[in-house]
Write a protein that binds this DNA or RNA. Structure first.
Lengths: 361, 361
DNA sequence: TTGCGATCTCATAGATGGTCGGCATCGTCT
DNA sequence: AGACGATGCCGACCATCTATGAGATCGCAA
């Protein structure tokens, strides 16, 4: 690894001149600058960001803390963060905490010794005190997908609105008994989605019944299990709103086994729009979160805060979007089926019709 | 951010003593050491890895280069890399190249100025010269999921064997006309899978027919498109082996539209075992790659190479594993259906029976 | 008890690679 | 002649580690 000293020696100038020539700062004769650049290239010179960072207190490195990159929600967010970081000359260090506070603490310690310029938290379960410690130490923090009672920037999606849209969709289709499977009661995302459910009911003049609300844990198995309870209710609900797609998937499986047709006998809506929801049968109606944008905006907020540490914290709230597919609307399914028939020739339907069981609908 | 100087002043000792006390190197009176540690803690001291790295030429940071973390194959690999890195005190910088050589070059430049201790390439398309440049500069490199004609460590899965297992499975079920949809001919993974297909045929005494092999591009649409060609063949094949799950998914959709039942009229096997393949209907028989292990082993190789730069390169080859689900075996489907019937009570089948369309089978 | 080497304990002085302000020099223009 | 711009060097500085060595302490043998 060559240094500016070696380049300086070869070029017959001082190291400082090399520095200025390569960075384009200060006065360096154009011809000399080119010569120095050529020498640097030929030596495969790469500036040492350690030495640089030591001096100007900037590492151009960010931390990204997620619970688990393997969870289908996070790669998109991470990609958003990473893209924005990269175009601004920053690198991103990935940290998987598994929602474990000890691991979280350990990672934060590492990020601090590495002197990262800022941290993006993309996770629904963060220790507020950890974030506060970071802020106290002067490390900018942006929260994504979660607001916390801490004075810092954040990006989140409007879970109340998302749930409101989903349930409103079901109600406007004529359903009056809509069951809900919520997430863990201590998570704000779960609480907000329940709130949206209530609001939608209220607006449609339907009384809220706590008996129709069952608490799941965001995992598939809980949806599978609770679907049985819903089916046994009397009168039986005609629609289910699951607070995330994984649980909706469990519901789908359970209903299938019980011979209950979706959406004819029971409509179903999920939340998150994970890839999976596009390939289930019937395909899942769900609420899409702008995952990539969340990450991208979080990173933009972070970078802007790095250069303006004192500005007022921004709280960005993004709008979720209802994606209507087959698990909620009978009409669509028939249409799909017709499309599939009519389309033996074209290939427009690569992601289209999948209803081979006409007799079911 | 306090430094050892400030701690030294408070403790009334020299900075060097603080350094030795905190690092446990050299001689420091036990009582003094404790006092220094207490002061450091109370000041929320975090050593500056820049200064440290500048001196001992170790950053404890690794680079991880993937095409796109959003592609379902990579999060698992990344997680494997990150876990091993973390337990060894390393941080991981994530780089998404999108298979774009310019971006790849730009990222590598960044990794070099950051003086990472090593790089894991987890991608099927790497520029050999980039890797060679890195190695020439003394930066250790490990390739995951890809072997390259370069002298460095690598981890990969045995694609020949995986395809061999997949096709062998179909042949042993009695199929004699097995079509294959390959990947882009210039990718080694695609070539190897084709080779496995040939070997399996050969071993079962079936002549290889080039007419049964169609070239796809690893994307869903190509599977969808080529499935029509396969259906039109005369005599029509009774089974299809797709070189990855995405293409298999396209085949599935196409067959569905054409009213061809899977697996009764046409058996189907994919490759990769992406999550999606567990929720299609019928669920996809496929070849699972040990993704997490690939990442973990790659990182272990890398870390061991960092401390032993001169040892012989290791080429680790992992075994893929055939996962038999419903798209290939008729019997299983029936069994599932029976299970589903019998299981109105238990919940063993959360991921089990999904066949509500008895009349289809 | 003394003497001497071995072991502790800690401070000083670079060194790491790069940046930046200050300053000296030189040429040119007014 | 004086001023000013262009050019390039010098030295300080960033936070930490390590080699070196000075002084203190201790054990053990004489």
């Amino acid at each position: 690894m060559p240094t500016i000293y070696e380049i300086a020696k070869l070029a017959g100038v001082s190291p400082a001149t090399v520095s200025r020539a390569l960075n384009g700062t200060g006065y360096v004769r154009a011809e000399l600058r080119e010569r120095i650049r050529a020498i640097a290239d030929s030596m495969d010179y790469h500036p040492n960001s350690l030495a640089r960072g030591l001096l100007n207190k900037r590492t151009y490195t960010l931390g990204l803390v997620v619970p688990d990159i393997t969870n289908p929600f996070f790669p998109a967010v991470a990609r958003g963060v990473e893209d924005v970081a990269h175009t601004n000359g920053y690198g991103v260090i990935l940290c998987n905490t598994d929602g474990n506070l000890q691991k979280e603490a350990k990672y934060l310690k590492m990020l601090r010794t590495k002197r990262v310029d800022g941290v993006v938290f993309t996770t629904s379960r963060v220790q507020a005190s950890h974030v506060q410690d970071l802020l106290n130490a002067g490390v900018p923090v942006v929260l994504a997908d979660r607001r916390l009672d801490v004075r810092c920037d954040s990006v989140s999606a409007d879970n109340v609105d998302g749930a409101y849209q989903a349930v409103g969709h079901l109600l406007s289709l004529g359903h009056t008994r809509v069951a809900m499977i919520t997430g863990p009661a201590n998570l704000t995302t779960a609480q907000e989605r329940l709130e949206g459910y209530k609001q939608a009911l209220c607006e449609h003049g339907i009384a809220f019944s706590p008996r129709l609300v069952l608490e799941g844990d965001f995992r598939q198995e809980s949806g599978y299990r609770l679907a049985r309870d819903i089916v046994r209710m009397d009168p039986r609900p005609t629609a289910v709103f699951a607070a995330n797609d994984l649980m909706a998937m469990g519901v789908l499986m359970s209903l299938e086994e019980q011979g209950i047709r979706v959406p004819e006998d029971m409509a179903l809506v999920g939340y998150d729009d994970v890839v999976l929801s596009r390939v289930t049968r019937p395909r899942l109606t769900t609420v899409a979160q702008p995952k990539y944008e969340m990450g991208a905006i979080a990173c933009e907020l972070l970078i802007s805060r790095i250069s303006h540490p004192e500005k007022e914290p921004e709280k960005v709230v993004l709008k979720p979007r209802l994606v209507v597919r087959e698990s909620s609307v009978v009409r669509e399914v028939e249409q799909m089926s017709r499309l599939a028939m009519a389309k033996k020739t074209g290939r427009t339907g690569a992601t289209g019709g999948n209803n081979r069981n006409g007799q079911d609908t």
